[in-house]
């Protein structure tokens, strides 16, 4: 993902683009576009990311509005989950005779 808040005054702000590829799926991050306002961001996202029939719905959000985790915090954020295998359903054996769990 590109940096959102380092634009100087001469450049259009950056927007992150999320595309829903078909009904029932969730929007996924596709990339980013520059645009002067939100409607232009939608148009640009449409023209850059859906020209080969990739989507049925688009979200755009200003990159500067996204609050992201700090890579420096990665070990504190994510590593504690690594050794907690009992949080996965596959850790548990299904007792005999239980159907439809």
């Amino acid at each position: 993902m590109s940096q959102g808040n380092t634009m100087d005054d001469n450049e259009w702000p950056l927007y992150e683009v999320f595309i829903r590829s078909r009904a029932g799926l969730s929007h996924r991050h596709a990339g980013s576009v520059h645009a002067a306002d939100s409607q232009m961001a939608l148009d640009h996202a449409r023209d850059v990311y859906t020209r080969r029939n990739e989507g049925v719905s688009i979200w755009v959000v200003k990159s500067s509005e996204i609050i992201a985790s700090d890579p420096a915090d990665a070990s504190a954020f994510f590593e504690p989950a690594a050794d907690k295998i009992y949080r996965h359903p596959t850790f548990y054996e299904i007792p005999e005779g239980v159907e439809n769990l």
């Binding site: 259009w12 576009v33 520059h34 645009a35 148009d43 640009h44 023209d47 850059v48 020209r51």
Partner: peptide, 11 residues
Amino acid sequence: PELEEELATAN
């Protein structure tokens, strides 16, 4: 005038 606008124009 801008990369994205150029792509729109080409479309």
